[in-house]
Design a protein around this nucleic acid. Structure first.
Length: 795
RNA sequence: GGAGGCAUAGCUCAGCUGGUUCAGAGCAUCUGCCUUACAAGCAGAGGGUCCGCGGUUCGAACCCGUGUGCCUCCA
């Protein structure tokens, strides 16, 4: 906003309040619009017709009404207090708007002469030598032997030669610096408290811009910036022999979230919410989160929330800005607060009635009133959002608010927990007597690979619209979501969104495959193909409903990235890599009608599952799957529900196929090389119906069932069964034996540990019976596998 | 200085009520393949002192203590 004005050559100081607001609205339309546009491009499916803005008349009115209401309830007061002052923005800030940064600074040791002696002096240590001009006392710890003799005496402030007392208070740490603390009530929170306690004067030497004012007394510094003065005063002190030494020192400095300026603790008259009182009135604000009536995801955030609320400080809600809702407080000619009221007329009435209560009140003339120049903190409007957005203040019983309040989920960033989440909960209980939402999902903060927060000034944040151009909106969404468990930071890297793009590509190719098939009636197909396709479909149907249940569980726990991962694997591994390969006709051959329909049905279910994560491609495919009527959309299609389908057990079939592929790989054989296999199975039924599939997927020409190992064959163990392959090439027998021996050794180790448990009486006695049974089963399985391997080795 | 969180594969993270089919996933890496949907792909493989040390337990990645390191918030 300031930049926009600068570009047009307009100075803020030349503008009236009204003019400034005109530009501010213009700015808001432009930049607010950009953000909404980015959200739309990303595919956020918001109810755009309800887009609202806190500065709208209706919402602003709610803000003002709430202020007046809280004032009447005695929860808002106006008071002179130490605030966080932003000298660049020339406004007060709340504690939450101050960012603490560690900086390398210096600790200056400065000598103060004793008033009663020309030789003796005390030394203080400070990081802010410019504030000595505002010193009103020196404080030491009462238990500090070194300084007992000087307590009650006076010292002289360098240059000014103002006499200030030496006082004692155990607030002072004896082991920090010199043990002597200079007390500057106007410029430090703790010093202010000390000043109050010992009734010390307050000398404020800084103006609203952080420049030294006349109270600094020394003409060399008046009218200069605090940092310039710091440099100069050190030189001057050094020349005058007041500096004992200067040390390097690391300390925390508060900076403004808006302007980056170093915060100045400053005494000023501001409006506050009495949070202690507020919390006493609304204990549910804490309770509801602690007892999970409002659930935080991840739950560990509850600790932070509790800690903040238990140590809550009053909320400074006034800001010395023009942009915002103006505080509805009215003052008379002497700047005395007359009334808090919505309009000047009301304020007049209040003033009159106050007057009339005083019998000697002479005049009933209207007073000359003026409104408070300050506005309210933006968060003072944001905290009302869940209510004000549905017009719940003016019409507390309207249909919308009754329907939408409380809402289910709030999705927000962890850094906003105090600013907004906590305060929405506060407003919720105060004004609706009810929580505003049931779940708070804290997203990760996107950082770059060096874990730096993405920011405009660092220039390390990619432009979302640019990314969308490169990887597609779906790719960006998928890439970001798959690596972002709740509350964990996201380290941005191109490879993530690449993964998203690749996935979109994979889906599109799968769709091309399915749509490319020539479909013919079932009647013309060989029985073994039809049977195999039915079996394949049964298997996938079972997988799908199992996955649906799994995904549902993850959603219930708000594990969004895990839900997405399950969908990703379901589509890529189960559907594309297995199912489509199982039913895929030989090149040039047609697909039978019923399998085609079933497959299209699966595809549709998968698209619906994925739609929340990748809205664009899923809609596109869904629209192309079948004839759709106008107005139909995957957005409003029914979400898949799990069927009762149970997959036939294909684990041994899959393992057989994998073992054969693996063998080819290990032996450097081409996948095109065809050979026969023999299977010695405990239960032929687990293989026989799927012979066709094994042949197709493992490129095997024939399957024989045998009772003994054929001569010259290689063994592939599949669970407790044996698969044999005769290869027309030299087999490295030694290597084969070694491999098997290694496997046996592992299994024996495994058996040993299982045995150790089973022979342990305490285990058998204490462990759950199912567990013991499970261990017995493990032992039997391992033992059977060992037998297979041993026999093959001829041991 | 105070409070909280975290530490598992190269990276980002799962791992429920302690129980070796529990040491896992995705990405990255390596090997072999241009196999008619897809090389932005296919088929495989390797990779870990579960931060160190103590304790509880028949049994610890998981519970307790302690040390170290990182992060966040507050002063």
């Amino acid at each position: 906003m300031v930049q926009m004005l600068r570009e047009r050559g307009i100075k803020k100081s030349d503008l009236s309040r009204e003019d400034f607001l005109k530009y501010a609205w213009e700015w808001k339309e432009k930049y607010g619009g950009i953000i909404l546009d980015q959200l739309k491009k990303l595919g956020a499916s918001c109810d755009w017709d309800r887009t609202r803005f806190t500065m709208e008349p209706k919402l602003s009115e709610a803000v003002i009404d709430v202020f007046i209401d809280l004032y009447k309830k005695g929860l808002i007061y106006r008071g002179l207090r130490m605030v966080n002052w932003d000298p660049l923005g020339k406004t007060a800030l709340s504690d939450e708007e101050v960012i603490h940064k560690e900086v390398q600074s210096k600790l200056y040791y400065i000598k103060y002469k004793m008033a009663d002696s020309s030789k003796d002096f005390v030394t203080i240590a400070t990081t802010r030598p410019e504030t000595i001009l505002a010193d009103v006392a020196i404080c030491v710890n009462p238990n500090d032997e070194r300084f007992k003799s000087i307590v009650g005496k006076k010292v002289l402030v360098p240059f000014l030669n103002r006499e200030i007392p030496v006082i004692a208070d155990d607030y002072v740490a004896m082991d920090f610096g010199t043990g002597c603390l200079k007390v500057t009530p106007a410029h430090d929170v703790n010093d202010y408290a000390l000043g109050q306690k010992y009734n010390l004067p307050v000398i404020d030497i800084l103006d609203e811009s952080g420049f030294l004012n006349a109270a600094a007394e020394d003409a060399r510094y008046i009218g200069k910036d605090r940092f310039a003065v710091r440099k100069q005063i050190v030189i001057d002190l050094e020349e005058a022999g007041h500096i004992l030494k200067i040390e390097e020192y690391k300390n925390q400095v508060g900076t403004s979230e808006r302007t980056g300026a170093v915060i100045e603790p400053r005494l000023s008259l501001q409006w506050w919410i009495d949070m202690k009182k507020f919390m006493e009135k609304n204990p549910q604000v804490l309770e509801s989160v602690m007892n999970d009536e409002i659930k935080f995801h991840p739950a560990k955030m509850k600790n932070t929330y509790r800690h903040w609320l238990e140590n809550i400080k009053d909320w400074c809600i006034s800001r010395q800005l023009w942009w915002g809702q103006r505080i509805p407080a009215w003052y008379d000619e002497n700047n005395q607060l007359v009334a808090v009221a919505k309009t000047e007329e009301e304020a007049q009435q209040i003033a009159q009635s106050k007057n009339s209560q005083q019998p000697e009140a002479s005049s009933q003339r209207p007073l000359r009133l003026h409104q408070d120049e300050d506005v309210l903190d933006t968060w003072f409007s944001s905290w009302l959002w869940p209510i004000s957005v549905f017009d719940g203040f003016e019409n507390p019983e309207n249909k919308d608010i009754k329907h939408f309040y409380p809402t289910n989920d709030l999705v927000t960033a962890p850094e906003i927990m105090f600013f907004w989440v906590a305060r929405m909960i506060m407003a919720g209980y105060e004004y609706r007597g009810e929580k505003p939402f049931s779940n708070v999902y804290y997203t990760g903060i996107v950082r770059d690979k060096q874990r730096r927060k993405m920011s405009k000034s660092l220039g390390n944040s990619p432009d979302p619209l640019d990314l969308i151009k490169q990887f597609g909106a779906d790719g960006v969404r998928m890439g970001m979501l798959i690596c972002s468990p709740a509350g964990n930071d996201i380290l941005y890297d191109d490879s993530q969104v690449e993964q998203g793009r690749n996935f979109a590509n994979k889906i599109w190719n799968a769709f091309r495959l399915v749509k490319g098939w020539e479909v013919k009636p079932d009647a013309g197909f060989a029985k073994e193909i039809l049977d195999a396709n039915v079996l394949s479909a049964n298997w996938f149907a079972g997988r799908l409903s199992q996955a649906l249940l799994d995904i549902e569980d993850k959603y219930k726990d708000y594990r969004l990235s895990e839900a997405l991962m399950s969908i990703y694997k379901l589509i890529w591994d189960d559907f594309c890599a297995w199912y489509l390969e199982m039913i895929k006709p030989v090149y040039g051959e047609p697909m039978n009608e019923s399998t085609y329909q079933t497959t299209l049905g699966f595809f549709e279910e998968l698209m619906k599952l994925l739609h929340p994560f990748m809205p664009f491609i899923t809609e596109e495919i869904w629209q192309n799957m079948a004839e759709r009527k106008a107005g139909e959309s995957i957005c409003i299609a029914n979400y898949p529900i799990p069927s009762k389908a149970i997959s036939p057990d294909l684990s041994r079939v899959f393992e057989t196929i994998q073992q054969i592929r693996n063998l080819r790989n290990a032996k450097g054989l081409s996948p095109k090389e065809v050979f026969e296999i023999s299977i010695k199975a405990n239960d032929k039924g687990l293989y026989l119906p799927y012979s066709f599939l094994i042949q197709k997927l493992a490129n095997v020409s024939a399957i024989h069932f045998v009772d003994a190992q054929p001569a010259g064959s290689t063994l592939l163990p599949v669970d407790t069964d044996e698969v044999f392959v005769v290869l027309n090439l030299q087999i490295d027998e030694a290597a084969e034996r070694e491999k098997m021996e290694k496997e046996i050794a592992y299994l024996e180790g495994f058996m040993k540990s299982v045995n150790a448990k089973l022979t342990n009486e305490k285990f058998v006695a204490n462990a759950k019976p199912e567990l013991v049974e499970k261990e017995r089963q493990k032992k039997a399985d391992a033992s059977a596998k060992i037998d297979v391997l041993r026999k093959s080795l001829g041991v």
